[in-house]
């Protein structure tokens, strides 16, 4: 069997830049309570979220992607990329993919560019795809962007989804390097369970249509999110030869503060090692992990040498985890 772990000293994918962008429009719990049948306390205690950013009229997912992508490229310094892998479940239009447009707007017309759809796990799927491009010689440097406007999918009167989701974009640049150097992505552990596709879904346009809106079955999602992120994290740490006690920082999909707290307890990794931004930005779907990664790097919560565990869970169901020893990065915005 072909070994996908980055054993080849020339074929490892190394993070050399990160960036993020959040739309400026912030919506508070108080504002939501004026139109939803809920209270500020209910939202905060169930989700840990107090504000979320919304793209708003006239702002498309690609606009967020271009901003985040440009910032990651700047952080990576000089040198171009030969591919863009873009994770999104909320593209500007069903066809064509968003990535070629985003690449052109970043001045990268001509590079390989396509979208990846794995809902909230999208960034980890895109990261693995980009690492594969580097390992197989398709590209030496790859831009990975995850961008979402989940606000466009929500039933405006659904109190179980509207408070949770926010819009945003995060990005990273990967370059060819050695598996032994800081920034090298360890084996990306990925999985899916299509038997539970209905737990997180937009059912529309077919004979089974229920509504045109995004729906989520909260309790079941909670259980699977905790179990899948825990198992994937264990597998990724194991592949890197790490004990969980060795993990300095966790950057987990910010689905809901209660999910990350339960996963922290199950893994036995203290909560003060977990990067958090769900309170200020909510759940930004695929963008969640790279936005948090860039924010945590910018704030110094992630420092060079930290052993960092990334994990995510989303509709599909899909999930994933990966490890990286954090590199020295500059110009993170």
């Amino acid at each position: 069997m072909y070994n996908m772990s980055p054993a080849d000293p020339c074929g490892a994918a190394v993070i050399c830049g990160v960036g993020y962008w959040l739309p400026p429009l912030a919506v508070t719990n108080a504002e939501l309570c004026s139109r939803l049948d809920t209270t500020e306390q209910w939202i905060l205690s169930r989700t840990g979220i107090s504000t979320r950013r919304i793209a708003g009229p006239g702002v498309a997912t690609s606009d967020l992607a271009v901003e985040a992508g440009g910032r990651a490229l700047k952080s990576a310094g000089s040198g171009t990329v030969q591919a863009l892998v873009l994770a999104t479940t909320t593209p500007d239009r069903p066809c064509p993919a968003m990535a070629p447009d985003v690449a052109s707007r970043l001045g990268l017309t001509g590079i390989a560019a396509f979208d990846v759809s794995a809902v909230c796990s999208g960034f980890l799927y895109a990261l693995a795809t980009a690492a594969g491009f580097i390992a197989t010689g398709v590209a030496d440097r790859v831009l990975v962007i995850a961008a979402e406007t989940f606000s466009t999918l929500l039933d405006p009167l659904d109190r179980s989804t509207v408070p949770i989701f926010g819009d945003g974009a995060g990005a990273a640049v990967l370059r060819r390097g050695s598996a032994a150097e800081p920034g090298a992505i360890g084996r990306v552990v990925l999985g899916s369970d299509g038997e539970r596709h209905e737990l997180i879904a937009v059912e529309t346009g077919g004979s089974r249509q229920q509504s045109g809106y995004f729906r989520m079955r909260g309790r079941e999602v909670f259980r699977h999110a905790v179990e899948r992120m825990t198992a994937a994290s264990l597998a990724a740490a194991d592949a890197a030869g790490w004990d969980l006690a060795d993990v300095d920082r966790v950057v987990a999909h910010q689905a809901n503060a209660r999910i990350t707290a339960a996963a922290a307890a199950k893994l036995g990794i203290p909560e003060d090692r977990w990067a958090q931004n769900v309170r200020e930005v909510g759940n930004t779907a695929a963008a969640s992990v790279p936005v948090l990664l860039a924010q945590a790097a910018a704030s110094g919560f992630l420092a060079a040498g930290h052993r960092v565990l990334l994990t995510a869970f989303g509709g599909g169901l899909t999930w994933g985890a990966a490890t990286v020893v954090w590199p020295e990065l500059e110009n993170i915005t």
Binding site: R46, R219, F222, R223, V226, E227, R258, A262, K266
Partner: peptide, 11 residues
């Protein structure tokens, strides 16, 4: 014990 705490309790 809200609905999410019930899931945690079951686990």
């Amino acid at each position: 014990l809200d609905s999410l705490a019930v899931v945690e309790l079951s686990m």
